[in-house]
């Protein structure tokens, strides 16, 4: 079930990975930032065995840990797997070495955003941005607004149209948003301190 790692397969000279040239601080940094010791991983693959999302990932969870251990920063930060992970913690619970793998994924997502690398799953990121926008505006999530703005962003007007219409018909999506009254308290969270 574990998918092949595309970046590591080619063995010709152009694609050779020289470990000595990789980021030797990466594993230590991730360990400190995520608060979990990924050097304990002995690649038993329990994480990938339980992961509900492994079919959608380019690297299995332990593969991501391996990339970090080898210091392959770009491959880790530009992977699809870190964005496909929803943080269900199945891997973290199953890991015999008690490594919080979901926390490693979260830390890598954070670094990917911070360092401005190519985000492999731009649609997922766009969705998160729309959720954030909705909370900024109303203090709560407004599903219809999020989905409409998301559709505009990704220009997939007809994908899931049937599901959307059924949800509207059942009034599962409200036309108007539920709002926080003291919205100032919310919006100021989204403005940097020095701008307030």
């Amino acid at each position: 079930m574990n998918p092949a790692a595309p970046d590591l397969k080619p063995r010709d000279a152009a694609n050779r990975i020289v470990l000595a040239e990789q980021d030797r601080f990466l594993a230590g940094d991730i360990k400190r930032l995520s608060g979990t010791d990924l050097s304990r991983c002995y690649h038993c693959r329990s994480c990938g065995n339980g992961c509900p999302f492994i079919r959608g990932m380019d690297y299995p969870p332990n593969g991501i840990i391996r990339l970090v251990q080898y210091g392959l920063r770009r491959q880790a930060l530009e992977s699809h797997a870190i964005w496909i992970c929803v943080g269900c913690h199945t891997c973290s619970v199953q890991c015999p070495m008690a490594i919080d793998i979901a926390a490693v994924m979260g830390t890598l997502r954070h670094l990917a955003l911070e360092e401005g690398v190519v985000i492999a799953e731009s649609n997922i990121l766009d969705f998160h941005r729309e959720v954030l926008h909705s909370i900024n505006q109303y203090g709560r999530t407004h599903k219809l607004g999020i989905m409409l703005r998301y559709k505009v962003r990704v220009r997939q007007w007809f994908a899931d149209l049937d599901v959307g219409l059924r949800m509207l018909a059942k009034r599962k999506m409200d036309l108007t948003a539920s709002r926080v009254k003291a919205i100032d308290e919310i919006t100021r969270l989204f403005i940097p301190d020095w701008k307030r």
Binding site: P52, F53, R55, G56, I84, V86, G87, C88, T90, E121, N123, I124, D126, F127, H128, V131, I146, M147, Y150, V154, A159, D160
Partner: peptide, 20 residues
């Protein structure tokens, strides 16, 4: 009983969530 339902991926990657 404890398998993740797909969470927010349902919005952006329905293709991953449906088999799950």
């Amino acid at each position: 009983t404890h398998r993740c339902c797909g969470s927010f991926l349902s919005a952006a990657r329905a293709d991953v969530v449906t088999p799950l």
